[in-house]
Design a protein around this nucleic acid. Structure first.
Length: 868
RNA sequence: GCCCCUGUGGCGGAAUUGGUAGACGCGACCGACUCAAAAUCGGUUUCCGCAAGGAGUGCUGGUUCGAUUCCGGCCAGGGGCACCA
């Protein structure tokens, strides 16, 4: 006897087991069908999956299952981004080991993912903390090193003096360490860098080759790379004012057109000229030291005033004979951008204006509004006027007078390129990038060890590949701050592989972004034990056809992966440059927040929503006390507005959770999790269950007439297919609702029996259309309908467009742009016929009210507009 | 400060990219079934109006036979970058 309600508790685990046993979702490397690689950003094993994961993996699973049905060999793997600080923090708090904590979390989360019924090939699973994964990463690091893609440099870093570690910029909040709360210091450390800046230009220009990426992400990456075109200009220094050995100062500018407005030069405290000038000037040396100590965190920068110190050096203007300007050391000049030196033009730059005001330097306007004359502009100018940064007409600028900004830039570049100082050009065009090399050294335990040995005699020596992996030692302690690797009694003491003398292992580990920069490539053949990748597998499966994840990775992870793929290709580990052909960034899962009278956050599970006199109210279930309803925000533990996927799957089932996640909200936008919404999804699931039961119960019968339900089914096939391919899952859901409504109508009609065959065929189509979204229910219904094997293995139905075509069209008719009537016309009628039919229509004539027709516009199959 | 995105019913959102604004769902209301409730089924639901009709996609101007869609200005919300020369 068929139960009246679908029992997901019994059915879901049963189907998951059946798929497992049949190896339905195992990917075969020798599968000859066209490939399709679907990948969702792999999770960090933080403990439990959250609703964001459910949304992400539900979307990816729809794509994977749809592509399987369309006849692709689908690669849809899953793994774990398993290194990182939370494991060490947990180890400190719970006195356990990061590995224990991590692998336990993986076990828990894997079981949770399995309960979602995802079509994953679990045979390819790995965690980045497995030595079998990171050994290959170490091998690639060595190849990158010999390929010239790695540099060891000294740079300023954020240093947390309490936790004794380097912090990423994202981990510095208001100038303090995010964990310790200690004021972050700037420290010079020697670190390992990957030379991503060698690829600045290519990473930027190749963005144009990624049409299937969101425009927003490409734009964010372009801004991050930050290309600017400008001019390097060498200024001679007044010999009477310079320290011995200094003769010139080279600056970088994007506004060479404003050179005539120069009133000072400013150099960074770390600039070589600042250092040589400091040698004989104690006051200047002290100022430079102060600048260096100043942090570069947001909080410091926002409040710090612009300060400078006159070095006494005078620079000779390259275009104005006899003019010199003072050279300052200034605290707002960065050594690592451009040349670490600028010329200041206070009239056309806010910072320069602030500086000139403070030190009472000249302000010379050189760009004026086009509708003024030079005299009017000069007469109207006041020192306190805000700097003019818009385009305009050059004045007070010698040979540039009368030109616009763009032309003036070009004119200056031409002139200075040919001018010479010490037999070299004064000016050189130069493209600069904001993108810096990627510092990957972390003073952390739970990361991939950098396979280097430091030898007093031989310098930095790579660990021989035969000695890989450099494995993390297990016996470490977390009771004191700092890097456990560094204080481990034996681990770092090794002999130099070159000279055999006593040497020291590198105790820094790699940034965890390195781990995630190539996992997608490893998935193509995780079984290869001797090499990171298998080129034939790379060629077969990459690029990833559809990558899905959060927008928070728009820059770092995606940019690093694009760089890494190029680096892998350069070192023979890959054969392409762009890893992700299609990228989709999904929105967050958000929920209402609740606060009780004491101001404490209350989780949604502890409250009940009631409607009193048309007003929504929340009440705490345990106490019966009213709770205030707050803003809708991203689910977060701190605000307790979280809904546990386990609870939802237990009370509604995975299919309901998946269906709700895909309904209503467009996938790129945030989705608001509501109890009403989940119940609606659950109701639809049961409705489908009843419809299928009713259809199965029908005897066979065919009226021989095309039934509307067949039209509806074929319309839905075409619409759902198109919308899945464009990842518009909310529209897919709407189309499926429409088909189910048509089916319900057909089943309720008295002539259902006469049309049983068409109704059953339409039901079967319905099941196939929602199968990627609610796979368990679909299998259950498929079996009832007598389908062969799994619906997961069935071919996607073919939509017949000819069945949808109507022979009569109901054309809307507008009069002066306002809809007045609908007129039925033959679908194939030409414009003249349509016009005649429309004008003959009684309701149209009534709407015209006898006014003369001036013009009739017929848009075929769309609309008719009559102008009177 | 610079760059970008988004504003449509009570709510989430559709609208074939210049052609019937409000698909589909949620909520609400009315009705049927029931002793009753739940579930289910039928109906109503942009606003004003009894109706005929009129207004309506943040505001405002424009282009067009026709604008949610294109262009200009403004307002609001959100995001990215930021002493980057």
């Amino acid at each position: 006897m068929r139960p009246s309600r679908y029992n997901f508790r019994e059915a879901e685990p049963r189907w998951q087991k059946s798929w497992d046993e049949a190896k339905t979702f195992a990917t075969r490397t020798d599968d000859p069908r066209p490939k399709y690689y679907v990948l969702e950003m792999f999770p960090y094993p933080s403990g439990r999956i959250h609703m964001g994961h459910v949304r992400n993996y539900a979307m990816g699973d729809v794509v994977a299952r749809y592509r399987r049905a369309k006849g692709h060999a689908v690669l849809h793997p899953m793994g774990w981004d398993a290194f990182g600080m939370p494991a060490e923090n947990a180890a400190m708090e719970k006195k356990s080991h990061p590995a224990t904590w991590t692998y336990q979390n993986i076990a828990t989360m894997k079981a949770q993912l399995k309960s979602m019924g995802l079509s994953l090939d679990w045979a390819r699973e790995f965690a980045t903390c497995d030595p079998s994964y990171y050994r290959h990463q170490q091998a690639m690091f060595l190849d990158f090193l010999s390929g010239g893609l790695v540099a060891r440099k000294t740079s300023k870093v954020n240093w947390d003096p309490v936790d004794q570690t380097v912090l990423a910029n994202e981990q510095v909040i208001d100038g303090r360490g995010w964990r310790s709360g200690a004021l972050v210091e700037q420290r010079e450390l020697t670190q390992w860098f990957l030379k991503i800046s060698d690829y600045s230009d290519e990473l930027l220009s190749a963005l144009d080759s990624l049409p299937r990426w969101p425009e927003k992400v490409r734009l964010m990456q372009a801004n991050w790379i930050g290309r600017s075109e400008g001019l390097m200009v060498r200024w001679a220094l007044d010999a009477a004012t310079v320290p011995a050995g200094e003769t010139e100062l080279e600056i970088y500018t994007t506004r060479p057109d404003t050179l005539f407005g120069a009133s000072f030069m400013a150099i960074a405290a770390d600039h070589p000229l600042a250092k040589s000038a400091s040698a004989k000037n104690a006051e200047l040396a002290a100022f430079c030291e102060e600048c260096r100590r100043m942090g570069t965190s947001q909080a410091v920068l926002d409040t710090a005033e612009k300060r400078g110190f006159d070095t006494g050096i005078r620079a000779i203007h390259p275009l104005v004979p006899g003019k010199t300007v003072p050279v300052y050391v200034a605290n707002f000049i960065l050594m690592d951008y451009g040349t670490g030196a600028i010329f200041g033009c206070p009239a056309h730059d806010q910072r320069d204006h602030d500086f000139a005001t403070k030190y009472d330097l000249p302000i010379i306007p050189v760009v004026r509004a086009a509708d003024l004359t030079d005299d009017v502009a000069n007469a109207a100018f006041r020192r306190e006027d805000p700097p003019v940064t818009e385009d305009g007409i050059l004045f007070n600028s010698g040979f540039l007078d009368g030109l616009n900004v763009a032309d003036a830039k070009e004119a200056v570049a031409r002139k200075l390129e040919t001018a010479s100082l010490d037999n070299r050009p004064v000016g050189t065009r130069k493209v600069n990038y904001r993108l810096r090399d990627w510092g990957i050294s972390r003073q952390r335990y739970w990361g991939c060890p950098i396979p280097i040995i430091h030898c007093e005699a031989c310098g930095t020596v790579p660990v021989p590949k035969k000695d890989l992996p450099v494995k993390l030692p297990d016996d470490v302690t977390f009771d004191v701050p700092g890097n456990p690797l560094d204080r481990h009694p034996t681990w770092k003491h090794v002999n130099c592989p070159q000279c055999g003398l006593k040497a020291r292992r590198e105790t820094d580990t790699m940034d965890t972004f390195v781990d995630s920069s190539w996992y997608f490539a490893r998935f193509t053949d995780p079984f290869n034990e001797s090499e990171p990748t298998t080129l034939s597998a790379i060629q077969k499966w990459l690029p990833v056809d559809q990558y899905i994840g959060g927008i928070e990775h728009a820059i770092l992870h995606l940019l690093y992966s694009r760089f890494f793929t190029r680096a892998m290709t350069k070192t023979g580990h890959a054969t392409l440059s762009e890893p992700f052909d299609g990228l989709f960034t999904q929105g967050m899962v958000v929920h209402e927040t609740y606060k009780n009278a004491d101001g404490a956050w209350v989780p949604p599970a502890d409250i009940r929503i009631e409607t009193v006199e048309g007003e929504r109210r929340a009440v705490e279930i345990a106490s019966g006390q009213p709770v205030s309803i707050g803003a809708i925000e991203k689910m977060s533990k701190s605000k307790k507005n979280v809904v546990d996927p386990d609870d939802i799957i237990a009370s509604y089932g995975a299919d309901t959770a998946r269906w709700f996640m895909l309904s209503d909200s467009p996938p790129e936008r945030d989705v608001i999790w509501t109890e009403d919404g989940v119940q609606g999804a659950s109701r639809f699931l049961q409705k489908v269950w009843r419809l299928v039961g009713d259809a199965v119960a029908l005897p066979t019968g065919d009226s021989g007439q095309l039934h509307p339900v067949t039209k509806a089914a074929h319309k839905a096939i075409l619409a759902v297919g198109e919308d899945v391919e464009r990842l518009r899952f909310n529209r897919c859901v709407a189309h499926i609702h429409e088909l189910s409504n048509a089916l319900a109508e057909a089943l309720a009609s008295p002539d259902a029996t006469k049309n049983a065959d068409q109704i059953k065929a339409a039901t079967r189509i319905l099941v196939q259309l929602f199968a990627p979204m609610m796979p368990h229910l679909a299998e259950e219904c498929w079996t009832e309908l007598g389908g062969e094997g799994f619906v997961a293995d069935a071919a996607w139905p073919v939509g017949d467009a000819s069945l949808i075509v109507e022979d009569q069209l109901l054309l809307p008719v507008q009069v002066n742009g306002r809809k007045r009537a609908d007129v039925s016309v033959p679908a194939e009628a030409d414009n003249a016929t349509v016009e005649a039919l429309v004008l003959a229509d009684a309701s149209v004539q009534a709407a015209l009210g006898g006014k003369p027709v001036r013009k009739v516009i017929v848009v075929p199959k769309r609309i008719v507009n009559i102008v009177v």
